[in-house]
Design a protein around this nucleic acid. Structure first.
Lengths: 152, 152
DNA sequence: CAAATAGTCTACTGCATCGGTCGACTTTTG
DNA sequence: CAAAAGTCGACCGATGCAGTAGACTATTTG
């Protein structure tokens, strides 16, 4: 499970929006600045996240993006699968996109890959953005660096 | 940790050689046939594995490749890192190739990525090719398919 | 209604990696 | 010497990654 820039940006974006859930729409530019994501690239990612049902948008003054669901109802795994594809390290052990394998049933590597997939799924599917938000809040309080979310 | 064809082939190759460790050199062509790997591609992979100290080679009639160490002393993680690079899903949490991150210490995503890296490492670093060989042998005995290693 | 604000959409680009292949060369054995 | 086997450098087409440019549409406010 390699996370590309796009995936990383998508996760940071959902996290950013988590801090504003139920309060206000957030402008692309604000996310771009806070999370250090190229604005044009972020546009495309947000469009994709919108089609995936993760976020909603509103045009015009006072508009912007907001989460379509509460942060507690969005898991990291969901977002990763949506942006990056299957979590399995190799097609033959994927749950969501199984591919054919000639060595099925007589390849000892297979079961190790399955263990890996299960271990990773267990972590990312059980971690919600509410969890990540709480974690981040804790870190910000302990950190000497200026916090990202001072407007909250 | 996505496994590419090259990585998959490399693992299958080391596994194949594990079955012949201490007994005989194996020709590229035999590995290619048994593991269904394009011969020319396999050549390059074996060269790389040789430079990495995983295998030895012998030219001329009766030559071929053999493991440089007993299967019990080669872990899956070692081979994966050598062929595919770091196991961490993202650079900022890599042990072997840490990259700089602006959000260090105030990003809750980070710790989840670290969990993932640890979980994956734990599995692949503790699995040796002796383990995989034993697993495979068990599967072959239970399988109705013709075994790959009939010459053993 | 007009201006400003903010998201939407299509298309393009440069670069790297992946998954190979070709053909010539070297070493070893009998 | 001939056959068997590994070695090596160059090349290739397809795909994906990380963006960028620029025109367009919808909404709000005065």
């Amino acid at each position: 499970m390699k996370i590309t820039y796009k995936g990383d940006y998508a996760l940071k974006t959902i996290l950013d929006l988590s801090f504003f859930y139920g309060r206000q729409a957030v402008k692309i530019e604000d996310i771009s600045r806070r999370q250090d994501i190229p604005k044009k690239f972020l546009e495309r990612i947000l469009l994709q996240l919108k089609r995936g049902g993760f976020v909603r948008s509103k045009k015009g003054p006072g508009g912007g993006y907001s989460l379509a669901r509460p942060p507690a109802k969005i898991s990291m795994g969901e977002v990763i699968r949506f942006i990056e594809g299957p979590i399995a390290p190799i097609g033959c052990v994927s749950e969501t996109a199984k591919t054919y394998c000639d060595f099925e049933g007589r390849c000892g590597l297979n079961s190790v890959f399955r263990e890996v997939r299960d271990a990773v799924s267990r972590i990312v599917d059980r971690t919600s953005f509410e969890d990540i938000k709480v974690k981040t809040l804790g870190l910000i309080q302990a950190s000497p660096e200026p916090p990202l979310y001072y407007e909250i």
